[in-house]
Design a protein around this nucleic acid. Sequence first.
RNA 1: GGACGUUUAGCUCAGUUGGUUAGAGCAUCUGCCUUACAAGCAGGGGGUCGCAGGUCCGAGUCCUGUAACGUCCACCA
Length: 955
Amino acid sequence: MDMDKVYRPESFEGGIYEQWERDHRFAPSYDATRPAYSIALPPPNVTGSLHMGHAFQQTIMDCLIRYHRMKGDNTLWQCGTDHAGIATQMVVERKLMKEEGKRRQDLGREEFIRRIWKWREESGGTITRQMRRLGASVDWDRERFTMDEGLSRAVREVFVRLYDEGLIYRGKRLVNWDPALKTAISDLEVINRDTQGHMWYIRYPLADGIKTAAGADHLLVATTRPETLLGDTAVAVNPADERFKSVIGKDLLLPLVGRRIPIVADEHADMETGTGCVKITPAHDFNDYQVGRRHGLMMVSILTEDAHIREAGECFDTNGQPLGEADGRIPEAYRGLDRFEARDRMVEDLKAQGLLERIEDHELAQPFGDRGGVPIEPMLTDQWYVRASVLGKEATAAVDDGRIRFVPQQYTNMYNSWMRDLQDWCISRQLWWGHRIPAWYDQEGKVYVARDLEELKVKYHLGSTEGLTQDPDVLDTWFSSALWTFSTLGWPDDTRELRMFHPTSVLVTGFDIIFFWVARMIMMTMHFMKDSEGRPQVPFHTVYVTGLIRDEEGQKMSKSKGNVLDPLDMIDGIAIDPLVQKRTANMMQPQKAQQIERRTRKQFPGGIAAHGTDALRFTLCALASNGRDINWDMKRLEGYRNFCNKFWNASRFVLKNTEGIDPAAFAAPDLSVADRFIISRLSRAIERVEESIAAYRFDQVATTLYEFIWNEYCDWYIELTKVTFQEEGVSAAQRSATAHTLLAVLEAVARLAHPVMPFITEVIWQGAAARLCTLKDGATVMEAAYPSASEWARDEAAEETVSFIQDLVVSVRNLRAEMGLPPAPFLKAIIRGACQRDEETCCECLPFIRCLARIDQVAFAKSGEQLPPCASKPLREYEVLLPLEGLVDPQDEIKRLSALREKLERNIKGTEARLANEAFTSKAPQEIIEGARSQLALNRTQLDKVLAQLKALGA
RNA sequence: GGACGUUUAGCUCAGUUGGUUAGAGCAUCUGCCUUACAAGCAGGGGGUCGCAGGUCCGAGUCCUGUAACGUCCACCA
């Protein structure tokens, strides 16, 4: 492939990926003699689109996968998508309403589900297309969907087995009810938001003329939810509370309703809080529910499924059995009202009856449904539960004893604290989109659970299944995703993939779904998957938890803030108008659109430039330090795009300058010191990259690659090779050795960097390998062997020699710049006081030094030897001097040297003080003391030189 | 209320088991269109490491306290 002068990733990235996919390069080798390495992709929402978090996590997964594949491991990246019950159903419902003005009920369940499948057909490809653009090397042939037949079978299998083992049960319990979505949701889907509300103080009159110790004829009750008064079945006071001891066991008359309710003694009532009297509404408050159970109180459900007041309260005993004749009457005035409307009316009525003592402002954390967006309501309903407390035991132990490790470690605490008091998991949802619960009921309401009707007949000895109706509910989405690592590998069948790839190696995910997904996956997997000795198998050995990607101001990216960055826009670029449109379309709060447009236009006046996939991936890796959140920085992306350009152009240089080389003519003895230097440095870089990958430190991987490629390979090595190519008197064999080294290192670096930057490295690798004549037909860098540090000879002598050259060259450049001399003209340099070895090295490397420092002549002088006026710089043990020859005002040079003198004197004083300290010399390790001594000696030598030079200049 | 995280250059961040004079990129300043690259090259300036104590010969690093910001969990009648 020809390489353009300017790096244009869009011109080749897409094509390379298509070729890889066409050739099925992403499939595992299935070579059982090789170690297995596998990652299960956290399944994104099938109808979703790729956001920065996905791009981040997938980049990291792809790095790991590509690295292990190149290491020769039998590598599987299992991919797929999630049906995302509520989210998807909501999207399709909204679309239905917008386009046809219909609700899902208008279509009926079957038709509605058909529409969702259709929607999935149409828009389900977005995210997988985007993953391809990102370069994700997932095995597309094994793509799964949580609702496809195989996974659905796994879901039924798990449900039935857990039910038969008593680990799934059905019961009427208080659940978090989302009145907007009309479904139960789990604790985790409830978001507590601080809101400004009120506290109402309501008088509950005592029945039968009784009075409190203080002589009051009522109890004062404080509440933030006055409307739930309709469901009150008691008022609780603390048993030790002297104020109310005398009325315990007596009755109150429930305001507005007139029902007699008892005063009960319960520790739940805190003497210090509120008025000391708590109204008890067992059917609409989690604490009250517990109080109700302790005291055998009736539970009165007063709300409908959309949170309106019922015509009459539904009454249940503490076990949830209906109480037909009980008194659950609701005053006519409130029937059918919305809960908040009812509240206003009731407060008015209480006020009118003189039962409202006062209202205070009160800040409270109000529970909201994270999807529905309205306050949730605790409601008594029949739901299915998983006994998480039982399944959680193994799952907790696995993290405790290190079978599962969190990276970074601090997430272990988060996991443990949640697992410690695990609540049973409500898994039924009153939705249509999802896995239908495999339970049936007969006319009497008896429950039958089986994988299908055929099995049900046999299991329950039924002649016919006629008259049975299936439970209408579906399972929580996280129920099926909890099985992800093994259901995607073919479970419950005993497949080759399960045996090879389970447990998976690592899970890469965000901290936000540790509870939703990670913990439940561990529970389910350890219950169902056993190793050959019957011990529970973990789903993965390591959980790598990534931080969140925020905008440049540290704000969370969100549609409503209009600060979302689409990774695809950073790859391919986007003009400003489409970007504005994208950010302001389909907004929940359209009034914010103008502000968002203004800010977007200000931030991206010219839109977003194309940066390419490799630059994006490199940036994501570079920012991925230790699981902390990332404040996205476009400048950083630009910098790494420039880095790609640098790498690209360096490769062009190499290919251009190695035309016609004969790789076979290369011989090790002909390697120059520069060649040996870069080979040695490469070895170190490889070692460092591998260590960093093992430690999940992708920032270090990126830094190591950046520094090696830019600072060492480009800035020094390539510049040094120019000398070899241009200098007269260099043998053809030596030129050939250098050309070979240039190519060989480039080829290896392409392999080294491939996991992070898959596309540019493919182009470069192909070019370098072709030139080296090692390229086989149809070969790709992604299947080439990962470079090994031991294949590249360490040569400390060469590194030291090049370091000598670098010091000298940099010193001359410094002097030149500090003296304000133009960089181009050649100068004469004098080295004074160098030891013989340094002089020899200098002579050997003269061509390099001459060329890089732009010095046409180097002379040596003895220490203390008088020279004409010079600019000087102490370096190591010697001194570099450039004759002034009227080029510079000696006064400037005196100023410069005086500053240097001060600095040296400061250092000397500090080091002397340290060495004079008896405690230091007696306690510090020998090598530190030695270091300080030689530092002191060096500084003193240098100071002497500076002083002598100042004297020579007449200061 | 409980737990955790962060605080280092103008900005975004590194800084391994404590060890000389704390690093990088971006930004900034100076000089260069040197035939791989101006998306570049060479060089410079810029930090009392949130604050206060303590341990130690030695603290950005360890300990205690404290502040600000952030996150999670719990509670709030």
